[in-house]
Every structure is written in structure tokens, then in C-alpha cells.
């Protein structure tokens, strides 16, 4: 009996080692293209006013943003990011060194606090090419996107790269408060952008990802095209129209989103929204994640905000007003 148990232990150990398989070179892959019908160029207006920020509904957490602003209806897609890289390269705003796309960051105040990193002016990583999970490739002249991933959220983008994208077009990353207000709205105090219940039909997260893999024809965890959870059915998988009160998609699940804020006296930047890799608890509006601004991940993307200029405002049906970029 002891021999059997020892054998089981040995086999388990061997199995662990057997699972750690990493090819030396990243091979780009293709997936089935799915049109969700949601435009990644749309913006939503978030009007000035008070809202509850965070987990607890009491007056201490009643915040006020006294200005209107607009936020992207979806995360920035691979196609948008590749287009930006091409434009920024042509404009001399970024450079490519090996597999690193780099751009300039003016640096920030350093207080010398424990664990804080010194970030001076200089060129920092924007996008990680040819790493496992990279969906954008560079042939020496042009950035292109792997087939089928065009409307998936851009991942493998660092905080610097997300900021660089927004600033290139005259926009900026949302603050945590702007992000939360856009996700929750002001009508009620909800846990998720669509309400208080979550099922695999609401968002791309741990529980739904297995179904999503089947639809996209892959065997590993994967992002969904932006705006996927919009009430449509994909090969029999019925989604819920999981918009936020302002008409935003993917504010919970799919990919974490870099925001402008960082931990006080630290260099780690916050991310919001949770990703396809996470349990539902991370998808709650107040949940957060954080990392250093030069790090990139397969499940972290971003979206931008911009000041609201009434003359750019167009009217669309629904709760929110959106303009085409």
C-alpha cells in the first residue's frame, strides 16, 4: 500500500514538470473573426455629477466629478493599436529596438519611499513584440494584427504604451474615479456595470471562458472581441446585453484596463475591471489590480477618456450620447 502511495506521489511530481512546456519561439496564431456589431470608435458621454465610488454606499464615498467627459465605449482594439503604432512610427514618436516598441515618458516625482521605483525621463517599453500572447507583429516597416484578433482588445501594452496611445490622439487614460463612474453610473449602487448578478452570459471571465474558447476555436484562454456581451447569440451561446449605464461594453471581464492613477508613493499603476483569467469577484466595479508601468500582460488592455466638447457631440439612441471618432 505504501508503495502505491509513493508511486502516486512520484507520478504527480512528474506530471507537474511535464506541464511546464514553453516553446522557445512565439508562434503567432489566428482565430475566427467575429463581428459583434459594436463599434470600437464610439465614445460615450459621462455627464458631471456625484456618484458613489467603491464598495460601500455611504456618504464618505459619495464623490463628485464636476465636469463632463467622454470615454471609449470599448477597449482599444489590436487594430486601433497597430494603426497607432504605424502612425506614431511615421511621426517619430516611437522606436523599435529588437522586439521592444518604445516611446518617451517625461518621468515623474520620486519620493524614495520603500518599494518605489525611480522613473526618470526616457524611453520606456510600450508594446512587447514576439512574446507569448503578442497579437501585433512588425515586419520592419509596418505593424499588422494577427488574423481574427483585429477587434480583440489590445493586450501586451504597458501602462506607458497605453498612455502613449491616448496622448498621441490628444486624449488621456481615465482616472480611477472616472473609470468607476463610467462603469457604475449614478442611478443606483451596483456591483457590476449591468447590475448585481453575474452569470457566464454577462462577461468574459473564468466561468465563461471555456464556452468562449469553443466559439473562437481555440484550446487556451482567450479574449473576446470588444462588445461581445451585447445580447447577441454566438453559435448558440446567448449573451446578455451587459452594457454599463452609459452604454460601455467590457467594463467587467475580458481584460483589465490600465487607469491613470497609481498607488500613493509607489510606482504601481492601477487596473480595473477584471479579466478572462479571473473569478467574478475581480469583476466587481471597485475591484482593482496593479502593476509597474513597464509590465505587459496577456490580459491587460485599456481605453481612453477625453474632455467633452459639446460641438463634437452626436446623438444616438439609448441612454448615452456617442460620437464617432
Amino acid at each position: 500500500m505504501k508503495k502505491v502511495l509513493v508511486l502516486i506521489t512520484l507520478l504527480t511530481t512528474v506530471a507537474f514538470y511535464g506541464c511546464v512546456h514553453q516553446p522557445e519561439k512565439w508562434t503567432h496564431e489566428e482565430v475566427k473573426y467575429i463581428d459583434t456589431g459594436i463599434s470600437s470608435d464610439a465614445w460615450a458621454l459621462v455627464p458631471a455629477g456625484p456618484f458613489f465610488q467603491g464598495q460601500f454606499k455611504n456618504l464618505n464615498h459619495l464623490k463628485n466629478l464636476d465636469y463632463d467627459y467622454e470615454i471609449m465605449v470599448t477597449d482599444v482594439t489590436n487594430l486601433q493599436y497597430a494603426r497607432y503604432l504605424n502612425e506614431a512610427l511615421a511621426a517619430g514618436k516611437i522606436k523599435v529596438e529588437g522586439n521592444d516598441v518604445k516611446g518617451f515618458y517625461p518621468g515623474e516625482e520620486y519620493t524614495g519611499f520603500r518599494h518605489e521605483r525611480k522613473i526618470g525621463p526616457g524611453y520606456y517599453l510600450y508594446y512587447a513584440l514576439e512574446r507569448p500572447g503578442s497579437r501585433i507583429k512588425f515586419d520592419g516597416k509596418t505593424f499588422t494584427v494577427d488574423k481574427g484578433f483585429e477587434n480583440h482588445p489590445a493586450t501586451m501594452v504597458t501602462w506607458f504604451g497605453a498612455r502613449g496611445y491616448c496622448e498621441f490622439y490628444g486624449w488621456r487614460l481615465p482616472t480611477e474615479a472616472e473609470w468607476e463612474k463610467a462603469a457604475r453610473g449614478t442611478e443606483d449602487f451596483r456591483a457590476y456595470p449591468w447590475g448585481n448578478e453575474i452569470t457566464p452570459h454577462h462577461a468574459n471571465y473564468d466561468l465563461s471562458n471555456k464556452e468562449i474558447r469553443k466559439i473562437l476555436g481555440v484550446k487556451h484562454g482567450i479574449t473576446t472581441p470588444v462588445g461581445f456581451f451585447n445580447g447577441r447569440s454566438y453559435e448558440g451561446f446567448q449573451t446578455v446585453n451587459a452594457r454599463s449605464p452609459y452604454g460601455l461594453y467590457d467594463m467587467a471581464g475580458n481584460v483589465w484596463q490600465w487607469v491613470a492613477d497609481k498607488h500613493e508613493k509607489m510606482s504601481d499603476r492601477f487596473m480595473k475591471g477584471g479579466s478572462w483569467m479571473n473569478y467574478d469577484v475581480y469583476l466587481r466595479i471597485w475591484s482593482y489590480n496593479s502593476s509597474l508601468p513597464w509590465n505587459y500582460y496577456i490580459d491587460v488592455g485599456f481605453r481612453c477618456v477625453r474632455d467633452h466638447k459639446p460641438e463634437t457631440q452626436g446623438n444616438q439612441e439609448g441612454e448615452s450620447q456617442k460620437v464617432e471618432n
Binding site: 506541464c19 512546456h21 514553453q22 484562454g221
Partner: peptide, 14 residues
Amino acid sequence: FVNAYYQEPLVSKI
């Protein structure tokens, strides 16, 4: 031990 992209087989077995 493993890059995030390839971690799933390991995580499943664990």
C-alpha cells in the same frame, strides 16, 4: 516556472 501564456496546462494539472 512558466510564462502566463503557457500556464494553463500547469494550472489545470495543479
